[in-house]
Design a protein around this nucleic acid. Structure first.
Lengths: 205, 205, 205, 205
DNA sequence: CATGAATGAGACTTCATTCAT
DNA sequence: AATGAATGAAGTCTCATTCAT
């Protein structure tokens, strides 16, 4: 049974999440600089002062968002990653990433922009997200090359090219908006086509 | 010989460029929101008031930068594009884009971030930059497919995947910074490896 | 034996004192304006809300401090004062005041500063502290003059000059801090020298 | 003839003074903490932003006030001080100080209070005001003692006692306000009586 | 035209006070 | 009676823009 202490902590945790979710929403929509703390408060349905009871300042919201919604999920993802052994793995992963990404593109790309400006945030992304993901992909590629399944290409480059492709695709998707010819294409098809490109390139043998 | 009128117009044009270059510099370094008009004035070596004699407001600087430094070059580029007929074309173009891009990544990626937030800017990018470039690439790809040189892949997707790859690669490059394993790799090699990936994929035949 | 009622009242009184002592401490250290109610609560070891169960507001703490720690002791002091008849009386009193004052200078001078700003507090000090003390000293001086022991000087002025000397000395002591040449002089000596000055002046006869 | 440069600098200096005078006025009246920057702006007849064009922040106003209205005059005063040789000197000085002080008591005592709370300000007062003044007085007293005119009293103590007397007298004057019996006494009389006290004490020989 | 001092709306943040538990 | 999370008014400071010189 929940003691008073436990109940209180639960509420505290809930408030943290509630405010952070609101901050993510508002920062994504308006950008960190244009978003105001009252905006976040309104979105969270609390008073301005309440935000400051849970986070020391506006910038801490940004850092917490990064930790909670980017670093944390990726850390999780990475710890679960194991080398798959069939080609459908790539398609599946791509589909998964794309579906997730295109859904969340309006939420997460703005954060990436912010990261470009805040040195501390940039480092976090580099160390906690980009590097580990590239390392996993690189190890996978290397093993495949040794095994003779993959062509011999510099793993550091190819992983960044493929990772970049996913991100860049989403970025263009976001910039083109509803007018993009791929806007209504279903994710499975997008993933399949991109996987084909990655696996076999555009040139006919 | 330059009449007084012409001289005057020349000076006017020079001031416009002087201020715009300063604005590009400052906006890239600090981001549009954090950059202040006095910052731009200082960089341009003019008084704050002078800026307002040439541009109606801060936001107009951003729009003008986009026109002058992104839309305009791309329009030019596009008007010159003609379908090349050998594969080295892709490598060359990639190398060109990458060299240009990785050099300018610190200048232009921030603008792209801004574009995500400003609806009018986003439209400009979509209509004047992304769409035309994708169309050109698409036409090239389609002709190659008809010709039987390229595999049959959805052109809208493949062009956005490849275009995205270039942008995404630069974004990762910027986020990873000097710690990136590809930070010191020379551009020719980067371009070659990426071209290999695009043309033939990672899978051994 | 203590009935429940009595016990309750005892606790109530204790809480009042506990909070007031904390407030005195915090107000002295930070100044009334910079001290926060949570500061006082922390110092008192109670919750913020508890303070409001005992005092209506922050300012009431200041008033209560003044009553409890300044007016009350002085009222007491004054009621006990009787005209002493030998000169050592002055030295003794001075030593007593100085010892008390220099010890408490960090606690009470800040309150005096506050009093300068708050009209109601100023009146309290004027009516309940300054005036009565000056009256007692004045009556003492007058009787000594009549008796022929003291020179003929305006009692209102001389009492305020001497009282002011004690306060002003402490103020300088506090401002000069540890670098003051009198910082380590013992109180007896300070009192003796000041008494000599008051009684016989600096001029040799 | 004033060039444009000179004129501009003159205006700048004037604005500095105008704002500083307003700040002195407002800080004295309300105390540093309760005074708001808009208060100062209103008093100075300028916009809030203008204040920040001349002083980096609120606290800098306080520091500048101290420099301009306390340290600077005292430095001046001290550099002019020379040992006088007749007793009327003390009366004259006292009268001068008192007249100045009682007039300015509402302006300067509040600053002294502030100095108690701000460590940096306290040091300034100690080093730049209190110490030099005490040194001058001390040297004067010592020479008089050597000369045989003054009784043998510890100079550090006696100077601080007399200096404190002046300050403390003003403080009481301010606290008692209009109800003080000395409130309407003319300054000459106050100075004379205090000089008598200082020179010959209260005890009849 | 160029200048830059003046402006004031609006941002972030603090904290006295309340009140449901 | 005690608690401390929630509140929002109010403070400090920034900066896009204007306009007299």
């Amino acid at each position: 049974m929940a003691s008073r202490e436990e109940r209180k902590e639960k509420i505290t945790r809930f408030r943290h999440e509630q405010i952070l979710a609101a901050a993510l929403d508002v920062f994504s929509r308006l950008g960190y600089d244009r978003a105001t703390v009252p905006d976040v408060a309104r979105e969270a349905g609390v008073a301005v002062g309440t935000i400051y009871n849970y986070y020391p300042g506006k910038r801490d919201l940004l850092v917490a968002i990064t930790d909670e919604y980017v670093i944390h999920p990726f850390t999780h993802l990475i710890s679960e990653s194991r080398t798959a052994d069939d080609f459908s793995y790539i398609t599946g992963l791509l589909e998964n990433r794309l579906t997730f990404g295109l859904e969340g593109v309006n939420r997460f790309l703005p954060l990436l922009s912010e990261a470009q400006r805040d040195p501390e945030l940039r480092r976090s992304y580099a160390e906690k997200v980009v590097r580990p993901v590239m390392d996993i992909m690189g190890r996978y590629a290397t093993s495949k090359m040794k095994e003779g399944t993959f062509r011999d290409i510099d793993p550091s480059i190819v992983t960044r090219a493929i990772g970049g492709m996913v991100i860049g695709f989403m970025l263009l998707y976001r910039i083109e908006g509803e007018e993009s010819p791929v806007h209504k294409t279903d994710r499975k098809k997008l993933a399949t086509e991109m996987a084909k490109l990655i696996l076999d390139g555009i040139r006919k043998v």
